[in-house]
Design a protein around this nucleic acid. Structure first.
Lengths: 109, 109
DNA sequence: ATTCCGTTATGACTTTTATGCATAACGCAT
DNA sequence: ATGCGTTATGCATAAAAGTCATAACGGAAT
């Protein structure tokens, strides 16, 4: 038996950001490619792409600058806005899970 | 833009308890009927029933004593185990949402 | 006994959501 | 021109969630 917690941000009742999307943006930042990033975090490119599309639409912010074609086939990089958002979210998340786990152990064991 | 958080318990990777189920058990305790409880928390009887079934199977604990037929058509009451579990979960949940909301405001505003 | 009532119990269907597949378009480098 | 690995999407399929209809129950009133 284990405790799980989830944290996400909504806009107009629609989810726009959570742990999965955080991993995705992070991986894009690392690998410079949506495709590569998706593989790395074990989701399909299709899904990654849908995530990004939805995030950008709902947030009204451009998060990923993409280029199809060109040297190495193209790629993707995070915008400054994305980096800022990511940073805030990570701060947000930090400590929450630990708090939850602690509480769980204290009560259920 | 708003923050959302969710807390739930899993057994073997399967969810067994969360806020919705907490409301359900609580309502059953109050109304003495799954049917009535479901209406009260705005879910279908079918869903409520599925919840209970899954919880009991996965937890391996009898949570709701039911009777079909009889005076007033029957009804349902929580077992002692259910009450205990509910109590622990509520302790668990207490304070978490507040912590999250606070953190969110501090960072995003 | 028979009927009535509100309940539990489930199967079957429908709708929605998520996932996966196939394919087009891109543009630099060779 | 051709090749390469990428982004970009429509479309089909699968899975999950939700809805609907109906059976069975058993005490109480008739």
């Amino acid at each position: 038996m284990e405790i799980k917690s989830k944290l996400w941000i909504e806009v107009n009742g629609e989810p726009v950001f959570g742990r999965g999307r955080r991993f995705l943006l992070h991986a894009i930042d690392t690998y410079g490619s949506i495709n590569q990033a998706a593989k790395e975090i074990n989701i399909s490119y299709r899904k990654a792409w849908s995530y990004i599309k939805a995030m950008e639409e709902r947030l009204g912010i451009k998060l990923v600058k993409r280029q199809a074609g060109g040297r190495n086939g193209g790629g993707a990089v995070l915008t400054e806005d994305a980096r800022e958002f990511l940073k805030k979210y990570e701060q947000m998340e930090e400590g929450i899970r630990e708090t939850v786990d602690e509480k769980f152990k204290k009560i259920f064991y």
